[in-house]
Write a protein that binds this DNA or RNA. Structure first.
Lengths: 340, 340
DNA sequence: TTGAAAGCGCTAACAC
DNA sequence: GTGTTAGCGCTTTCAA
């Protein structure tokens, strides 16, 4: 920067002002500065900038598992939002591990991240407190912990999930099983509640063994389906807390020589990109990544830039059923006992 | 930090030394410092640290598409490597877009990243030069551009791919098609070359229309298969440049009422996690993310920490066929004309 | 409008 | 072994 100043024959203050687009700079000087910048290949040092200005222009996003395709899609949308507002993002993948989560929080604190979107489950209270202590604006899915500068994005799980249940019922299903997400994950519990409620509305009763604990992974879906296969009476449809689970279920169904949807219907949740490419293409409840990312980012921005902006629109994300070909009229399932 | 020093009744230099684990610090002082750190909840400021020490402890990883599940897996492994060596990673996803790529490079330069793993395709020369100009160690897959501090990881595509072709031939296939990756992507071209070579070794000749340009996406695989379906004589097997392509192919095959593997066998490449969950489970050539990440990281570290470390072992990643159930003895394909 | 100068929070060289 | 001090590269007063 000094070199640029020397070459342009101005002070470093002028260089700084030029680069930051402060309008009070004489055009001629500015031209000289830009020329020098080009000539020297000067690149501003982000750390120095952040140090002196106290603004890192960094937004954190904490996710549980980068390996679940939903999250890369979310990250991509979120990054887009960030770039458009001249922010960068810091990705923290916790991999459901509390030590990793701690490392994450450390990084966020050390890098003076300005806001964090927590798109994962039950972050432990003490860790949360560490963020809150620095007064970092936080945005969550579903739950807003107490405290200032905290927002929650409300996802309307009911809309899509009750649509899904209705769809199944209309098709003639009565024995509907559910494979839930990881315990303690709020967004997963909200989905399950929405499912149970939709069932009640449709006056459908299912045995205890039809609601199964999953973990939002392919393996979890497979395990869930495996235990369903041990039921005395097989369900005719399975709803899953996310698409990965559903893919695991379809895999296990195929292993057991059950045809989807003739023998068993499957519904997922999220509508990840790959969902339309499964065999058969997966019927699923769509939750828009873009909407979610947008809402999360806007919430943070509002807390960051305070009263200058008007309050962002409702932080609500809709969900909607997408019917593909993994659901159909219940057929005549072979008994799994002879099949495994 | 000043506050910590005051509370512990030592100088800030001692605080710095304590925190950085420099051994010359009196135990008693160190204890006082740590206590003060805890008490005040002190968090070192990474930017200031990086600024003064000139070391950002940041390693960049440039990938083409975070939405392709192979890359998140790679990122996860790479991050693991980095964390173990007390580095952090900066993820740059270019999304096959040259403006995004440029933003990526800017970020890398601005943040004074110490080394970069380029795990994507034909980064444009001028951009590359910008990195080279700063003498940032770079590691590539397959190709090493000229210049110092550049390494290339050699992937032994031949091993796995010739295994795959042999597997197909042993099964009785003679009409084998290939759906390649994006043009200009070196790793994709190397795979294609390995395929063509294996074909020659097995003395198999295929028509021009059997080698198709793809783009490593689900859609690309689908499109590739669609054009294969228009062949006068259908191939009995399709090899794909990556697993996503293969999944797209299987989807399209199913759409056309072709059974996999009875009517057509499919082989992928990468062995992403989901590959074993497709229906049928995908036969694919495994390339280990961990190995790749490890090799890339070691190469950078070697260039960074110079002579102090011994040269890393050979930067070579093996590939190996994993036989699942998408390949079988060629059957009796129905003609696609009546099926689409 | 511009320049000089004072730090941002930290490490490292040097003196004690 | 510990403290003092000089910056790292930049932004931002403040005076001119």
């Amino acid at each position: 920067m000094r070199a640029v100043a020397k070459l342009a024959n101005v002070s470093i203050a002028t260089v700084s002002r030029t680069i930051n687009g402060i309008l009070t700079v004489n055009d001629e000087y500015a031209a000289r500065v830009w020329k020098a910048v080009k000539h020297l290949g000067y690149i501003p040092n982000t750390q120095a900038r952040a140090l002196v200005s106290g603004r890192s222009r960094l937004i954190g996003i904490i996710i549980s598992d980068i390996t679940n395709p939903f999250f890369p899609e979310l990250i991509q949308s979120f990054e887009e939002e960030a770039i458009n507002s001249n922010y960068e993002i810091l990705i923290g993948s916790t991999a459901y591990d509390s030590r990793r989560m701690e490392i994450c929080i450390d990084r966020i604190l050390q890098r003076k991240v300005e806001g964090v979107a927590v798109m994962t489950f039950g972050i432990e209270e003490p860790l949360l407190d560490r963020l809150a202590a620095q007064n970092i604006p936080l945005v969550f899915i579903d739950v807003a912990p107490k405290g200032r500068a905290m927002s929650a994005i409300k996802v309307d799980y009911r809309a899509g999930i009750s649509e899904a249940v209705l769809h199944l019922v209309a098709l003639g299903h009565q024995r509907i099983a559910y494979i839930a997400g990881p315990e303690g994950l709020h967004s997963a519990e909200a989905r399950k509640d929405a499912f149970l409620e939709a069932l009640k509305t449709s006056k459908i009763k299912i045995p205890k063994s039809y609601t199964i604990q999953g973990d939002h992974t392919l393996e979890g879906g497979m395990a869930g389906m495996r235990s369903l296969l041990r039921s005395k009476v097989l369900p005719t449809a399975v709803m899953c807390s996310n698409d990965m689970t559903a893919i695991g279920v379809m895999h296990m169904a195929a292993e057991a020589r059950l045809r989807v949807p003739e023998d068993i219907s499957v519904i997922g949740f999220d509508d990840i990109h790959i969902a339309r490419f499964t065999i058969p293409p997966l019927t699923t409840v769509r939750m828009s990544c873009q909407e979610l990312a947008h809402a999360a980012f806007e919430a943070i921005r509002f807390n960051l830039e305070g009263g200058t902006k008007k309050k962002p629109g409702r932080l609500e994300v809709k969900t909607k059923l997408t019917v593909r070909r993994s659901t159909g009229v219940p057929g005549n399932p072979a008994h799994p006992r002879d099949l495994i």
